[in-house]
């Protein structure tokens, strides 16, 4: 790991972004705890202090918008109100699904005063439209990207991942606000800076089955098999995921003979920068990634 005193001072104490507020989401507290830990470690690496949105609540996820649009709006909306009350301008969201839910609500509340009325009626305050929602990887702005590259002390040579964006990392672009192709290229170049050899494939946005993995496991099994099979055909030996639900589905579902380790992007950051806890994250995997990492002498 790069020692802080070796970095130019202006890069460590970038006042503008020295404190990052984040919205964790429910799975970051349980099934994807390591995603959070590693993302926060990454933020610290580039000189930011992270702080949780106080008293946050579930964004409503798929179930809320699936059965009641107003309820979905309220659940997401309360978090926006909290951010405003706590004086937060930029709120970083760690889960792609929460990100889409929160941005959808933000968009609706800004453009439909009728919907803001409902929010006011329910929790006594209107959303003024002052919160900028960002996806957590946006922490790595251009200048910080350079800083980050210096921190890569253990290039992950030998890992041949495919990038699995899942449904909601970039889609729908009129909600996420990302210019899809350039954004994906940017993510790819970022991943390449970890020293891996990214493989190209066509299944980056093929749905893993999402919550149907619980209600219709057979369907998720077929989906996951197709995805992992394609990954193998492209010459990959692991998959990089950005979403807690995708990561679980891609490791837990599907048949035995297509299995591949699925890393969160941030875990690889941890390994490449030799962060303190990186080893402990690996134990949580449902498909053991350790043989692959040992084989390539990356541990």
């Amino acid at each position: 790991m790069v020692e802080k005193d070796k970095l130019p001072e202006n890069q460590i104490f970038n006042k503008e972004h020295s404190r990052l507020y984040y919205y964790p989401g429910c799975s970051l507290m349980s099934s994807a705890r390591e995603l959070g830990e590693s993302l926060f470690a990454m933020a610290k690496l580039v000189g930011s202090w992270v702080e949780e949105l106080k008293d946050w609540n579930c964004c409503g996820s798929s179930p809320a918008h699936s059965v009641n649009q107003d309820y979905a709006l309220l659940l997401a909306g309360r978090n926006l109100i909290l951010a405003e009350r706590q004086g937060i301008d930029d709120l970083y969201v760690t889960c792609p699904s929460c990100f889409v839910r929160l941005r959808t609500a933000e968009n609706t509340l800004r453009h439909a005063p009728v919907k803001n009325d409902i929010l006011e009626e329910a929790i006594g305050k209107r959303y003024d439209g002052t919160v900028r929602l960002k996806f957590f990887l946006e922490v790595l702005t251009d200048s910080r990207r350079e800083l980050f590259k210096d921190a890569v002390v253990n290039p992950l040579k030998g890992l041949k991942p495919v990038l699995y964006f899942g449904c909601l990392l970039t889609r729908p672009e009129w909600i996420t606000g990302f210019d899809v192709l350039p954004y994906e290229a940017e993510l790819r170049s970022f991943v390449d800076s970890l020293g891996v050899e990214t493989k190209r494939w066509g299944y980056a946005k093929q749905c893993c089955g999402a919550h149907l993995a619980v209600t219709k496991p057979e369907l998720a099994d077929t989906q996951v098999d197709k995805i992992r099979d394609q990954a193998k055909r492209s010459g990959a030996n692991c998959i990089i995921s950005f979403c807690p639900l995708c990561q679980v589905n891609l490791e837990l579902r599907g048949s035995k003979d297509t299995r591949l380790p699925v890393f969160y992007i941030s875990e690889l950051i941890g390994l490449a920068c030799k962060l303190k806890n990186a080893g402990s994250w690996l134990k949580k995997h449902l498909v053991d990634p350790i043989p692959l990492l040992e084989e390539n002498k990356l541990l």
Binding site: C26, C58, G60, P63, A64, V67, H211
Partner: peptide, 17 residues
């Protein structure tokens, strides 16, 4: 699935998986 998820949300404001 949706109903039980939302009951969790209503109970604690977060989902206890």
């Amino acid at each position: 699935f949706h109903r039980e998820f939302l009951k969790q949300v209503d109970k604690r404001g977060r989902v206890y998986e």
